[in-house]
């Protein structure tokens, strides 16, 4: 009952935030409202028992997507132009689509109904089989990495392709080491806090990476948290210094290496006489094999995600400073 109340209030707040985002013109303000929107939706995901999704949303929404949007806004203008004419046609399209969709929901099973078709098909099997065959408490991880390993391989490839696409579109230029803004040198609090938090964030990323079998987390989330740590460092100490820790060349290798680790696990299991990505062959004991396989592919996912996000960030920020000042 309490959960219902929190769920309904959070949904109401989300709706209000959504309307405000549409109405506002200042893009900086909109970016910040988007950050709030993502915070609220992450709380909603926790209420709805989707802790892994909440962790993803926490890692991406609160950090990366806001930062990338800000980088975009910094490259373009802050103010959105007023529309030239009344948006009557879009409004009509939207209301009509919405009405049709709402009509469609009338036949749907109610929220929380245990007899809904979605709960009767494969989900009980996953829940039932996971403890014995996979031995991993987090069923989401076992579905993601083992039962549906092919899908996740597809996802990783998509992320890899996105990274390659950004690389092709934005290009890249290495920065000199001391190319940081002199204003930032004066921000002592920021620099000290960053020094304090940077190792903690990296440590926590490793925790999320390797504890993903037992609690919420996994490669995707860990990769994002890892990249966020480096972005924080870049914000406080300048991009040039981060590139001394992780140079651009390393990132390109990492981006490929993650996908290759994933595929390599699949090929290894084929060489041992199983099917592609059949982890139980990997060790003498099937459950140990599953553990090993899941750990390795999660590692691959984490490496690729972290590298791609850092590449996107490098691409945006190195471009930001190339622009001649008279353009803005």
């Amino acid at each position: 009952m309490e959960e219902h109340l929190i769920n309904n209030v959070l949904l109401g707040l989300l709706m209000m935030t959504g309307f405000a985002i549409v109405r506002m013109r200042s893009l900086l303000a909109v970016t910040m409202l988007t950050s709030i929107y993502s915070l609220l939706s992450a709380s909603l995901f926790v209420v709805l028992d989707a802790v892994d999704v909440a962790l993803t949303e926490a890692a991406i929404g609160a950090g990366i997507s806001t930062i990338l949007m800000l980088a975009t806004v910094a490259l373009t203008t802050d103010e959105e132009k007023a529309p030239r004419h009344k948006p009557l046609l879009p409004l009509f399209v939207v209301v009509a689509t919405g009405a049709a969709l709402i009509y469609g929901t009338l036949d749907m099973p109610h929220y929380g109904d245990p007899m809904a078709p979605i709960h009767l098909h494969v989900a009980p099997t996953y829940l039932h089989v996971t403890p014995e065959e996979i031995g991993v408490p987090n069923v989401v991880t076992s579905v993601l990495a083992s039962f549906r390993g092919y899908d996740t391989l597809g996802e990783v490839t998509v992320i890899f392709t996105a990274g390659a696409g950004v690389l092709a579109l934005l290009g890249y230029r290495t920065r000199r080491r001391n190319s940081q803004n002199p204003e930032i040198r004066k921000m002592v609090v920021l620099r000290v806090i960053t020094k304090l938090f940077f190792p903690l964030i990296l440590l926590f990323a490793l925790y999320v990476q390797f504890h993903g079998d037992y609690g919420p987390g996994g490669g995707f989330q860990a990769g994002v948290i890892f990249a966020t740590g480096f972005i924080l460092y870049a914000l406080a100490y300048g991009l040039g210094n981060v590139q001394r820790i992780i140079p651009y060349r390393t990132l390109r290798i990492m981006m490929v290496a993650g996908v290759l680790i994933y595929i390599g696990v699949g090929i290894e299991s084929m060489l041992l006489g199983g099917k592609f990505l059949e982890y139980r062959i990997l060790a003498d004991d099937p459950v140990t094999g599953q553990h090993l396989g899941i750990m390795l592919i999660e590692l691959g996912v984490g490496i690729t995600v972290a590298a791609v996000i850092l590449i996107i960030y490098y691409g945006f920020v190195s471009r930001q400073h190339q622009e001649p000042p008279e353009d803005t």
Binding site: A50, S65, L170, F220, V224
Partner: peptide, 11 residues
């Protein structure tokens, strides 16, 4: 598992 994998890339 479906929802936790997509990563946004606002480019």
């Amino acid at each position: 598992a479906l929802a936790s994998t997509p990563i946004r890339y606002p480019t």
